[in-house]
Design a protein around this nucleic acid. Sequence first.
DNA 1: TGGTATAACATGGTAAATTATGGGATTCAA
DNA 2: TTGAATCCCATAATTTACCATGTTATACCA
Lengths: 155, 155
Amino acid sequence: MRKVFLFMDTVINKVDAKGRVSLPADYRAIVKELSTEIVCYRSLSAPCIEGCLEETLDKLANVIEDATDFFSETQDNLTNLIFGDARRFTFDSTGRIMLSEKLLKHAGISDTAVFVGKGRKFQIWNPQNWAKEEARIRAEVMKNRPVLKVNKDEK
Amino acid sequence: MRKVFLFMDTVINKVDAKGRVSLPADYRAIVKELSTEIVCYRSLSAPCIEGCLEETLDKLANVIEDATDFFSETQDNLTNLIFGDARRFTFDSTGRIMLSEKLLKHAGISDTAVFVGKGRKFQIWNPQNWAKEEARIRAEVMKNRPVLKVNKDEK
DNA sequence: TGGTATAACATGGTAAATTATGGGATTCAA
DNA sequence: TTGAATCCCATAATTTACCATGTTATACCA
């Protein structure tokens, strides 16, 4: 029994004529072990598909419910977009999900897709687009090294 | 039952044709005792592989997860790099992990690898590269002794 | 302290299981 | 009945699990 559930790694899979893609085995293992489902929606910030566990969106919904901060209204708008767009994607016995035309179009994916782990979330990109995006991010990170404080709120 | 979990020492192991390497026994002991897993990724700052416990990345994910940051772009970029690159590496019954081509290439490792303890993390180097790097670091430290500021609040 | 028995380890090889993916067959709805 | 979605089977490639052996380190005892 694992303790930690993170979407990681970058895996390239084929999208067949029917729009089917194998969900990476690691991702499937998480879904199974937590007996939950994958949810996907169009990313609001990039030309890619974003996915996460249903629980993750549930948490988001809870926070929005009792959000009292300044940005709550903005966030509320954003969640409208997310929840309006999101859908469950269950995988079949061979581990494949069927991405919708809408999602594929948004990400510009035709016959190949690359899954990029993001911890609690993951993204699905057109391979070429991801290559460019990764290079961009890497360059930016190298330029002004941001500090990630892992132990921020640790005691 | 031990109290302290640190990756230490410098161990040289062989990498076989399939990319398999024995994880140092001490490292394995830590993983087993904490019933967790090892995660490896390309170092952002050096030509080497970096590894840590899955829990370490989980802490990072928790910080990011904070729902107010659900749509944030700043840390988002960085997690793409880290989580997109990282992967769990479970060792088999004989204690070996199988390093990916990507990681080996980044570190310039072919048939020999050296594990270097770094406390909460460790690194895997090409032996020659590590020899140079160690000499460099040692010289640097000798020249201008760094000051380690310890956070008083931490225990 | 020195020597030996025992256990742990690294490492090569191989067998078994998992995974990705193509191609139908079946079902359901428009 | 046509098109789409779901399910099932087959297969090749990859990954993982297991066995075997020589070597090194550790524990034990005289």
